[in-house]
Amino acid sequence: MPDTFDYCDFGRKVIDIETKALQNLAQYINGSFSEACHLIASCAGKVIVMGMGKSGHIGNKIAATLASTGTPSFFVHPGEASHGDLGMIKKGDVVLAISNSGEASEILTLLPVIKRLGIPLISMTGKPESSMAKLAQTHLQITVEQEACPLNLAPTSSTTATLAMGDALAIALMEARGFTADDFALSHPGGALGRKLLLRIADVMHTGEMLPIVTEQATIKDALLEVSRKGLGMTAIIDREHKLSGVFTDGDLRRLLDNRIDIHNTTIGEVMTRNPATISPQVLAAEGLKLMEDRKISGLLVTENERLVGAFNMHDLLKAGVM
């Protein structure tokens, strides 16, 4: 391979070709696309996605995207379907068959059985005159002018277009169903995404004996001892009716020391920060993180019906995997 080969230049050409393929794809979002969406939306069963080779790899991703956005779906390999896995497909399902040529023999072999079961077929091909396109109840066209491969052989632009068409299906259906962030969270309970969508302030806050609290009449020294004991870098201050009056933080202490205030005789009520930022225990922990970042603070007090119920800091969110 010549030392002068410009990898970056060729890489940009690939991106340019695939970008044009996606721009041209928009013309195929038409009545057939709407019909495919209606077929899937009215499906009582699952969407069964099929594809061979690279189309199969893309089909696997499309099935996963459908499933995670509210459309029950899974991938069935056409070769395995001919040897028993066809039993996974039942009346009430919809089959989405993918093939750029529209002539994948492994899929065409299955179509008579699928038709006999009365299962609607949606085909996704680059050839509207192909066998799969003609046999389908509705056809999604994914034609591209050229592959990004210089030999025009390796599936590149065509697989990119296929994936984008699958995303268009999944997200259109998601929007039509009114699929919410809470719905999304239920199908993503694991990992960082699940924690951000499921964890609420109530799941990470300190309560009971671990909650730092002093009264307005306590001295600054008493408040500092409470901050040290509870380890949150702050303490809440309550009035005689046990309602939240203010907060005192490590940052407040540094400012007091600069002003040479007597910590032994001055009450915390005289120096506390009044009307501190608070949050509800039912709010998502990720929203608490954003509030702290916006306010440039490292901890928050949690209130419910004007009563102090908890407290947490950045370390708690870090430990919970929210950040």
Rank of each mutant, 00 (worst) to 15 (best):
T19I: 09
E226Y: 06
R177H: 13
D3T: 14
F312V: 09
D85T: 11
L317V: 07
M174K: 00
L232W: 10
D167A: 05
L225H: 12
P281Q: 05
R295W: 12
A285H: 08
P128A: 06
E304V: 07
I297T: 10
R295D: 08
G191H: 04
A44M: 04
R177T: 06
A104H: 01
F33G: 00
S99A: 11
I62R: 00
K196G: 08
A136V: 12
L211K: 00
L317M: 02
Q137P: 07
N275Y: 10
K196W: 12
D3R: 03
L108A: 07
L39Y: 06
T266S: 01
G70L: 04
G178I: 07
E35W: 01
P276I: 14
G166S: 04
L163A: 11
E80M: 10
I17L: 12
T65G: 00
Q146C: 15
A285D: 12
V204M: 02
P78I: 13
S158V: 07
G288I: 12
I40Q: 02
L308A: 06
A97Q: 00
L284Q: 06
A44F: 09
M165D: 01
I122A: 00
I17E: 08
G246Q: 07
M234F: 14
T156V: 07
C37I: 09
A168Y: 01
S82Q: 13
H242W: 05
E129F: 08
V76C: 12
E18M: 05
T162G: 03
C37F: 03
D16Q: 09
P189G: 07
N60S: 13
M272C: 09
G102D: 01
P72N: 03
T207D: 02
P72M: 02
D3S: 13
G191I: 11
M323F: 15
V214T: 03
L198N: 11
D203G: 12
L224I: 15
I98R: 00
G208T: 10
M88H: 07
A202M: 09
E216D: 15
D252E: 08
G92F: 11
Q23V: 14
S123V: 13
A133D: 09
Q23I: 14
N24T: 14
I114H: 00
A63I: 10
L108K: 01
T278S: 06
G11R: 01
A277L: 15
N60H: 14
K319W: 11
Q23N: 12
E129L: 11
S34A: 13
I261C: 06
F75M: 05
L163H: 01
A26Q: 07
R255I: 11
L140V: 03
E80V: 14
H139P: 11
P281K: 03
A63Q: 04
I171Y: 10
T159P: 03
V95G: 01
G70Q: 03
T143E: 07
